[in-house]
Design a protein around this nucleic acid. Structure first.
Lengths: 185, 185
DNA sequence: TCCATGACGGACCGATCGGTCCGAAATATG
DNA sequence: CATATTTCGGACCGATCGGTCCGTCATGGA
């Protein structure tokens, strides 16, 4: 080979695509811009990713790994009401972080109006995995109607994510923590 | 004139555009498709609307008139806690309706990732008008912290709208009614 | 030193979209 | 019937995007 094969090329591309896709949206960012930001050639990008869908899927998957790991760390060992309390605080912390631009999976689903492509199916799976987590904790919480509790907590979680783009997102997240705590008294 | 001026042409175009834009989204529907559905010519469309943005704005404005009128009818004469209770039930009724595809203003804002164009500003104004209504009712409700009550109700409203695309939207809306009622006991 | 390998950057292609223009048809007027 | 005017449908234009292709150049081994 003329140049040493760069095993980090794929990661470099994803590193470059990540902030572009997250901050400006998938549709607004063209492949040319990703290439320019990655400092690589178009050929290299299309060798690692057959098309834009695959690049978007990889972006979402890497995002999911990060979020899932952080979620697992935060909720480790918790169950029932404690799990729900910790979960809503985790969501609050995320939404309140500087530069937060919404849940990437919900962003993709809304930007594309319920896509059935692979990135869309993956994003939907991520959302529903969080919902199942809420249902599991609700089932362990020892309340009379776990299904109703899960529905109420989920409603609040969705409300926080929906409010993430607005200036009052921190107030909404704080209200969410208060509501979940009140539910679990 | 060769043919009689059709005063309803503008309405016919909007009638045709409405279900297309609402069910499939703004980006996914091209002007050619609107023309075909309206049964008119492209010239006629561009005579009534200088560009797609103006057509979209007119679509949102007409939608807003419909929703605002229905809202005013439903909430007529109510105030304070009664207003909030009636409002969340109105949202529940809307989200539960057959063929409901989400709040058109939130749909536009998400599909376009916070647009600053005229349709985007109008959509944001509609959303914030509903929020101000919640704040007004909360202020009249005679609670210790009206701001916190408004935040909590708003969180629930946003949660219902965010859950509108999911199959469990009716359960979420029902949970929302229960939560607001519980807040106001 | 020379050459083979492969990456880089950009030109290029086809499709799509918003928006404009033009020929044809249809109608009102003399 | 003839003509002027207006409308309709579609061809057309320019821009943009995803994706491919190619000329050039850097690099490392024989």
């Amino acid at each position: 080979m003329a140049r040493p094969e760069d095993p980090t090329a794929r990661e470099r591309i994803l590193d470059a695509a990540h902030p572009l896709f997250y901050e400006r949206g998938i549709r607004a960012v063209g492949m040319a811009e990703v290439v320019a930001a990655a400092g690589t050639g178009k050929q290299a990008l299309y060798r690692h990713f057959p098309g834009k869908d695959e690049l978007v899927l990889a972006y979402l998957e890497r995002f999911a790994e990060l979020l899932d790991a952080s979620t697992a760390r935060t909720l480790d060992g918790l169950e029932g009401a404690d799990g729900l309390r910790a979960l809503i605080r985790l969501v609050e912390r995320r939404v309140g972080a500087r530069g937060y631009a919404g849940c990437p999976f919900r962003n993709y689903l809304r930007e594309m109006r319920d896509p059935r492509d692979r990135p869309g199916r993956f994003a939907l799976r991520q959302v529903r995995a969080l919902r199942r987590l809420v249902e599991r904790y609700a089932a362990e919480a020892g309340v009379a109607d776990p299904g109703a509790l899960a529905e109420e907590v989920w409603l609040i979680v969705e409300g926080v994510y929906a409010g993430a783009p607005y200036p009052e997102r921190r107030a909404m997240a704080a209200a969410a923590v208060g509501r979940v705590d009140a539910l679990l008294i």
